[in-house]
């Protein structure tokens, strides 16, 4: 695979929440790189810190959270900037313009009292990209591009007049209308039914070919990962435990957790069958440990069949077993 120009690089990103007087760390030293035009899937069980990672990059965390350490370097034509250190106004200029975001719930993520047209044209207008009249035309073109039928008439519609799939298409149109270099999609298909999920995934793939943006795709669905992602990162308890090119990780998973996830999953070639089957993460036996009470060593040691005293005493560092691959496990070589 050709070497891509870097787009977003997370370096040791750490995000802390203050909960009832105590601190928890849902994102604990995440390293992750996305190249221009590349799709990176971020996969993990519920509560592993995927959304917090995405929101940290966008700096849309709730008031109880803060980025405690690390960097989120965004490479722009004007040079690299560390999003974690930007002031509020500079960050505002990045949101919607250089990075677009699509959320999980199309039902609640659109404003119920504003028209679709008003909401889709807004990024263009707040970033001063064009006049109001031009914005309307570009919104029609964008709605057309995301496959909304009769787009000119839809501009005057309110969100409740659209189906879930149509709303998610409108969300995507809104996130991409300023042609950002990076799209962050946080489980954009989870709330939709299976056939619509497939359509949205195809749509994103098509838009990526056309517009060339990089995508950080948060998902539970390994079928979608196999289908559209170039690289995959597996997240567990706030850390990336394994990452690499999708085909390689699926063919030879190195982390015991990844192997557990993939245990009941067909090979990448069978992605369609997998997606049809719902493609949910396989149930790995045991419970995710509470962030309030993580084990001292490897966070996965409470569920790992290979766990040794070393695992329980010391968290494993990231090692790189091959080009573009990374794993956090003391015993990865045993795989």
């Amino acid at each position: 695979m050709a070497e891509r120009a870097p787009l977003l690089e997370l370096r040791g990103l750490r995000t802390v929440f203050r909960v009832r007087g105590r601190e928890i760390t849902p994102v604990d030293g995440v390293d992750l790189a996305i190249g221009a035009g590349e799709t990176v899937a971020l996969v993990g069980e519920s509560g592993s810190g995927k959304s917090v990672t995405a929101l940290s990059v966008m700096r849309l965390l709730p008031g109880t959270a803060r980025i405690d350490a690390g960097q989120a370097i965004l490479h722009r034509e004007t040079g690299p900037v560390d999003l974690a250190g930007l002031d509020a106004e500079a960050m505002r200029a990045v949101r919607g313009a250089a990075i677009g975001m699509v959320f999980q719930e199309p039902m609640t993520s659109l404003n119920p009292v504003l028209t679709i047209g008003d909401q889709i044209t807004e990024p263009l207008l707040v970033h001063g990209r064009c006049s109001r009249a031009q914005a309307g035309e570009r919104a029609v073109a964008m709605l057309e591009a995301v496959g909304v039928p009769d787009p000119a008439r839809r501009l005057a519609a309110y969100p409740h007049e659209l189906s879930g799939g149509m709303r998610q298409r409108a969300m995507i149109a809104m996130a991409l209308i300023c042609r950002p270099g990076l799209l962050i999609a946080d489980e954009p298909t989870t709330a939709l039914d299976v056939t619509i999920q497939a359509q949205i995934v195809d749509l994103l793939e098509g838009l990526q070919r056309e517009m060339g943006m990089g995508i950080l795709f948060v998902t539970h669905n390994l079928g979608v990962v196999a289908d559209m992602a170039h690289r995959v990162a597996i997240m567990y308890a706030g850390r990336i435990v394994e990452e690499g090119p999708v085909a390689e990780v699926f063919a030879r998973p190195l982390h015991p957790y990844t192997r557990g996830l993939l245990a009941s999953v067909p090979r990448p070639g069978e992605a369609l069958a997998l997606r049809r089957a719902g493609g949910r993460l396989a149930a790995v036996p045991g419970q995710v440990p509470s962030l309030m009470n993580l084990p001292r060593g490897c966070a996965f040691s409470t569920r790992c069949t290979l766990a040794t005293d070393l695992c329980r005493a010391m968290p494993p560092d990231r090692v790189s077993p091959g080009p573009g691959r990374g794993v956090r496990c003391h015993h990865w070589a045993a795989a």
């Binding site: 966008m58 849309l60 509020a88 505002r92 200029a93 990045v94 949101r95 919607g96 313009a97 677009g100 975001m101 959320f103 719930e105 609640t108 993520s109 659109l110 404003n111 119920p112 909401q119 807004e122 990024p123 707040v126 970033h127 969300m171 809104m174 996130a175």
Partner: peptide
């Protein structure tokens, strides 16, 4: 609400 977060994600001024 989610839609307020969406507005912020578009770069709308607070």
């Amino acid at each position: 609400q989610d839609y307020v977060r969406t507005a912020r994600s578009k770069g709308v001024r607070e």
